[in-house]
Every structure is written in C-alpha cells, then in structure tokens.
Design a protein around this nucleic acid. Sequence first.
DNA 1: CTGTATAAACTAACATGTTAGTCAACATGA
DNA 2: TCATGTTGACTAACATGTTAGTTTATACAG
Lengths: 236, 236
Amino acid sequence: MTNTDIDVTNLREIGAFEGSLAQRVYLALQEAILSLQFLPGAVVRKGLICEKLGVSRSPVSEAIARLSNEGLVDVVPQSATRVAYFSMDDIREGTFLRQALELASIAKVARDRTDEQMAQLSRNVRLQALLVEDGDFAGFYQADEEFHAMLMHFTGYPRLKTVARMVSLQVTRARMLLLPTPGRSNETLEEHQAIVDAVREQNPEAAQEAMRHHLGQLMPRIEALAEKRPDLFQSR
Amino acid sequence: MTNTDIDVTNLREIGAFEGSLAQRVYLALQEAILSLQFLPGAVVRKGLICEKLGVSRSPVSEAIARLSNEGLVDVVPQSATRVAYFSMDDIREGTFLRQALELASIAKVARDRTDEQMAQLSRNVRLQALLVEDGDFAGFYQADEEFHAMLMHFTGYPRLKTVARMVSLQVTRARMLLLPTPGRSNETLEEHQAIVDAVREQNPEAAQEAMRHHLGQLMPRIEALAEKRPDLFQSR
DNA sequence: CTGTATAAACTAACATGTTAGTCAACATGA
DNA sequence: TCATGTTGACTAACATGTTAGTTTATACAG
C-alpha cells in the first residue's frame, strides 16, 4: 500500500473556475483526479489544499464530501481521505448506467429531432472528419465529447448530461489512460456517422443499435488496460 | 408567494437514523420533504432545525447541500433556502431517467437471472396478490417498492438502486399525492406479473415492453394531479 | 399615494476552534 | 521472531465565531 500524499502543485488555482469557493475547490480537485495528476491511493490532505488554494477548511470539506459521493475519493471517518483506486466493478457499472441513459436519449432524439438539430449534428460530425484527417487527436476528443453532449441536450432534459457525467466519472478517468490507438478515431468517426444517419432517418431502433455498438467498443479496451496497470486498480 | 416556515415539529428525531450526524439530519429532512410534511415554498431555517435536532449548523449545512444537489430544496445564496416546488419538467425528466434505468435493468435481469432470483421474484409477486386481496394498501406500496428494488439488486450493480432513487426523487414526492385509486392496485399487480413472466421466459424484449407499459401508467396520473393542486407547482 | 433611496435584519458562506475516532509506531511479553 | 497491548500523533467530524450578500421594512422625495 502506497502512502504517498497528493502533489498539490498540480492543482489549478481556484481563480480559474467560477462559482462559490466550495464549487471552485471541487472543480479543481476533480480535474486533478480525473486527469490522474492525483494518483489512486494518494492521501488527500485538507491542510495542504487549504494552504495551496488559500481557503479555509469549510469549502474544502464540502468539495471532498461531493467527491466522496461520486466515488472519486474514499473517506475513512476520523482518519484519512484517499484518491479512489480504479475498480473494474465500478467501471462496468458506470458503463452500464451510461449506456442506459445514452440509449434512451438517442431513441428520443431520433423520434423528436428538428431539422435544425439535425443540421447541428451533421456539422459536428463533418468537423470530426476534418480533425481526423488532420490527425488532431485532442480536437477530436473534444468534438467527440461535444457530440454526446449535444445528443443529450437535444432530449430537452437539462439534468441528463449532469447525471450521465456523474455516473460515468470512473469511466472518464479510465479513458485518460487509453493511448490514441492508430485507426481508432477513424472507426469512432464511422460509428458516429452511423448514429447520425439513423437519427436523420428518424429510426430509433437503428439509432439505438448504432449507439450500442459504439459504446460497446470501450470496455474491452479498458479491460486490456487493467492488465497493464494493476497498480492503479484496487487491491482490496 | 407563501412565506411560511417549515414546521420542525414534523421532523423525526435523529436518533431514529444511522450514520454521521450530517447523514441523519439529511435523512430526517428528506423524509419530511418527500412525505410533504414540509410543503413546497416553505422556508428552511437552519436555526430551527439545529434547535429541534440538537446539533450545530455544520451537519445541517451539509445535509442541505445534499438536498440542494438533489433538487429537493432551492438555495438562494446569502439569503434563504426553500423547499422546492413541484415542477412538471423535473417530474417528466425524472420519469424519463428512471425509465431508462429500469429498462436497461430488466433486460439484463431477464437475460442473466438465476433460478433462485426467479423464486424470489415469484414470491414477492404472490405476496403482492395476498396484500391486494386483503386491501392492505400500505403493505402493497411497500411490496411494490421492494419489487423494483429487487430487480435492480439482481443486476449486480450496487449503485444502480441509489442512482435510480436519486433521479426520481421528485416523482417519488409526487406519488405521495396520488390517492389509492380503486382497482389500480389490481392493475399494478397484473403489470408486475407480466414483467415476472417475461423474466421467467428470459425474454428481454418482452420484459422491457411489460416494464415500459407499467411505468407508462404513472405520468398521466401525475399530470391530472397538477390540475388539482396548482398551489404545489412552481409559479415562476 | 407611489417610486426610490437607505439602513437594518437576516442568512448562507466562510473561517476557525474543539472533540473524538482511527491508525501506526513502539513497547512488552511469549 | 511474532502476537498483543498501549500510547500518541493525526484527521474527519462537529461546534462556533465572522463576513458579506440579499431581502425587506421604512423613511423620504416627488
């Protein structure tokens, strides 16, 4: 069991975020955890965070409470808080929940989409094609995120995006470890195109099937990862 | 706009709950809000709650932060906290999210169920039949809850139940206003039986269809409610 | 009587002091 | 060497003090 502390120099200053102090601290910590600048097992010390960010323990405590609720940290009462280890069980569950929400969303969007929404989707996918052509992986990753966010936005349910993000935080963190595989972005693009095609034709079943296939590509890659980096996975 | 305070005498003592003080306060407040003992629009005063429950502002603040996150209270920064009004938008969204999770769950359970799980489901539904026969509405309500909780438990995903509960809290609160309609529990029972039959036959599509039909019965009844009790719905 | 400025009261948010539970280091005995 | 008991440092949880933003009541001008 490693007992290393987190390295607070990896925290972005809270001036970079908006909202209450607690909210900013939360965002700063979440970013550090998801980007793996805080490694699993590292001890989260309130004192260091307070010092680095220049705030008192109150907002830090509230931030940690939220992270605990999301499963990104493990709090041992009266003792310590650590960055949560990866857990294949959590990741599998997160994938399942995420898929449940994505499938319901895509079916609704395929049914109810407007022409304007269709145009936006089409535009996004054409942008993706450009980015793949240019080999701009970072840009493609962002456009990919936007693609899924856009679909959820089109359902008209504002909390959906938030809930989907929350349930799959562990998956998001695991994705950070996936190196860009040659040819994968091309496949991803084709999968996105298939989804958009089904939405264009207003065919909910086809859209669901295309989305199911798309999302199904992720888990095997994460499972391969667990073999290579067992140090990041829970040893309980 | 009513400016009534909450009536803290409706709060159960925290001795009735388990966990940290913050957790107990959270549960006590949630119970009062969901059971409509705290009415929409009522001002939540920390001072009164602290006095009634015999705790300081810290655990109360943490509890309110969680309730705010779940949408059960509206916090106006630096000003006041109120019990959230009902919102048809929130309820529709909650129903959508709940259905997404229930449909994914029932499909998985129909595929993967064990004989032991099948026996438990069958037992629960036969219990429901007895309770309907006896006209025990409270008992039937509880068995109904257990039925859905059981299905989610059988997926093997431990957080699922928690997430499903969280996304549909507004729906749960609205259900409290639905008077037991004559004959409805009989219908509900038949719908549950149809679901269990499909699970027995390990037919995911049929199970989903039965579940979809079952869940589809709720929204129309809530919509009728919004007409009768406009005072509880948001007037923004 | 009405619109507006102002101040006082109230509250969430934040800071800081205190308590009590946990855990690891160390000592003691087998 | 190893099991076990004790102690002390450390931390989350809780209590309380302080700050700053919002709302509302009130005074005053038009």
